[in-house]
């Protein structure tokens, strides 16, 4: 009898632990059971100003992808940003614009996309050509000071 109680409670305990793990995986980390298809695009920026991996990529304020890698191309002095975009979000035209923006005043950097007008669309491995780097506060203030001085 005692052994039965032990076994039942151990079974319940193990079950509770596994359920807790499942809850963490599904509810807290929000894994997609069906891994949604993505494609990769690159974009070159003059300055990404502390954009980080996993930063979001948004179109019209809706997150449609993530930054997966950032490399620097010293030859051109540019940052090359690799981003993964959801296929479900639809297609982007070849003249899509990309900007490094800031969320709020102190917020994190993210990439904002602007849909273009061309009929051709960007495919996996494509590059966004029309880019605009981040606004760096020091540079703006520097410009302002030189202009006020002249």
């Amino acid at each position: 009898m005692r052994m039965r109680i032990v076994e039942i409670s151990v079974g319940g305990f193990v079950l509770a632990g596994v359920l807790a793990l499942l809850f963490l995986a599904v509810r807290v980390s929000g894994i997609d059971v069906q891994d949604s298809a993505t494609y990769t695009l690159t974009a070159r920026f003059s300055d990404v100003a502390g954009l980080k991996r996993r930063a979001k990529v948004s179109l019209a304020g809706v997150t449609i992808g993530r930054v997966v890698d950032i490399k620097v191309d010293a030859a051109y002095g540019e940052a090359v940003v690799y981003m993964e975009l959801d296929v479900d979000a639809g297609e982007l035209s070849t003249d899509t614009g990309a900007q490094v923006l800031t969320e709020g005043i102190l917020g994190a950097r993210y990439i904002g996309l602007l849909q273009g007008a061309e009929d051709d669309v960007l495919v996996d491995g494509g590059e966004i050509v029309d880019t605009q780097g981040a606004l760096v506060l020091e540079r703006i203030i520097g410009d302002l000071v030189t202009r006020l001085g002249s």
Binding site: F13, A16, G17, V18
Partner: peptide, 16 residues
């Protein structure tokens, strides 16, 4: 070794 990871998972869920 079996119990502590399970307890940790339960701890996390209850705390959240």
């Amino acid at each position: 070794i079996i119990s502590l990871p399970l307890l940790t998972a339960i701890f996390n869920v209850v705390a959240i």
